[in-house]
Design a protein around this nucleic acid. Structure first.
Lengths: 254, 254
DNA sequence: AGATTTCAGGCATAATCGGGCGAAAACCGC
DNA sequence: GCGGTTTTCGCCCGATTATGCCTGAAATCT
């Protein structure tokens, strides 16, 4: 791995994650922190990023906080990124994914975009927007009724379009995950999209922050044993959770 | 093995692997590193690759994506709003509109949303997002491939979905409007969506800032006489423009 | 304020580069 | 063929680069 190559990847990760930390990058690339700092220094000189204490951020990033959805986005951002990174190892390059709407799946999409070479079918406007620029990313945004609060499409048009595709994975991030109640969402529309994606995919990957484990929401998506992979951050509460059929992956977060 | 031959093979390996290392190549071709370096030097002079410490990589196009869309948005915001308000008078409440992508149509969508009671079918993520919250607004976002720079969907999926609907109006905002060359857009994808919308609508409304009058762009959408209503801001240049079949409306701007 | 993390610069090390030199091969005119 | 010239290539060695480690200074956290 050469410095130019590393710098290009750092740039990719930066656009994906908005910010990068020196020590995190040092771990990921298996080089010393000094090397990373030197890279960041060079890239700052080329005005590609802005160095800050502890790492770097996009130079021209304007943050305009918006309603509920935007608020949730910043919440547990670190863990969500870690979950996204962990999920990345489950999805081989070149495969086809349905991706559901959600702040966790957005973090996942950012990682996916940074890696490139993937086919994505999603109902999330945000994911479509993010991944549109990705290298070798074939993105399809599903049509339908845009939701009032969440940037995503729902409704029968969305569902019927999902049925026109087949994918390797359905990546969904529900509101709740409960041993008895299974996987749940807050709204019928959301749950229906998630269910349709699962139906048309070989394998079901659930991304889920540990907050949501043990939570039951209003509308059922599926039973727990219909989930093939669960990716979450380490959490004591989750110890009691197990999938009869699938595997649980923990994304360790400091 | 001659140097040309070797260089050709190096080029092949480079496109295959993205990067090549001096020592690796020296091993593969069973020559010294110096020889390889001389080859790489030559090839760099011919701009076939970029040498880096340890080897070479594909010529790097580190490009800074220009914020074209965001920049355009703020441009002539006042006039665009006025055009949007003017257009509002043409569209009765309760009617169904196709709305094309563009900064001018976004301004129009804002007005439409404020009034409410409208059915909208659009390929613009931005318009879908804006109008989703509107009172009595039935919005449908068309699926398809998200564009790299512009928040909108294009492609055959978008086109085939347009054909599933019929509307009263197609509201489009082209890049250029020229007496002889007619209505033009910059990209084929954009033009095709606009054309499809026109085909499935009773009436065609063109929103167009006076800047664009007299401009011809690359891809033709339609002839001028296929336009039913043109809404623009008052401008001396536009005096010469007339529609054989439709009406021209001026949105006076202070 | 004290503890911890991060930064910046100096130094060490290993890999790589660049240029000079000479040998071998290829080329060329006769 | 043959001698001279040109090209190609390998080896050597000082210079450069990339990276890691260390230490005191600065910033951040608690």
């Amino acid at each position: 791995m050469w410095s130019h190559e590393r710098q290009a990847k750092i740039l990719g990760l930066l656009t994906a994650r908005q910010k990068v930390s020196t020590s995190q990058l040092a771990l990921e690339f298996d080089v010393s922190r000094e090397t990373i700092r030197r890279d960041l220094l060079e890239m700052e000189e080329r005005a590609l990023l802005t160095r800050v204490h502890g790492g770097a951020m996009l130079s021209d990033h304007v943050i305009e906080p918006e309603p509920a959805f935007e608020k949730r986005r910043g919440h547990n951002a670190e863990q969500k990124s870690a979950i996204g990174r962990m999920a990345l190892t489950l999805i081989p390059e070149g495969s086809t994914c349905f991706i559901d709407t959600g702040t966790t799946t957005i973090a996942f999409a950012r990682e996916l975009m940074a890696r490139g070479n993937i086919r994505v079918i999603t109902n999330s406007l945000e994911i479509a927007r993010i991944m549109a620029g990705g290298k070798d990313c074939d993105v399809l945004l599903l049509g339908g009724r845009p939701h009032r609060d969440v940037p995503a499409t729902y409704g029968e048009m969305t569902l019927s379009q999902i049925d026109r595709f087949l994918a390797d994975f359905a990546v969904i991030s529900p509101v709740g995950l409960h041993v008895d109640r299974g996987v749940t969402d807050y709204e019928l529309h959301e749950a229906e999209v998630a269910r349709a994606m699962m139906r048309r995919a070989q394998s079901c990957v659930v991304l889920c922050h540990s907050d949501k484990i043990g939570v039951e929401s209003r509308v059922s998506i599926c039973r727990l044993d219909e989930v093939d992979h669960l990716v979450t951050d380490q959490n004591p509460k989750s110890a009691g959770l197990s999938l009869s059929r699938g595997a649980v992956h923990f994304a360790g977060v400091e």
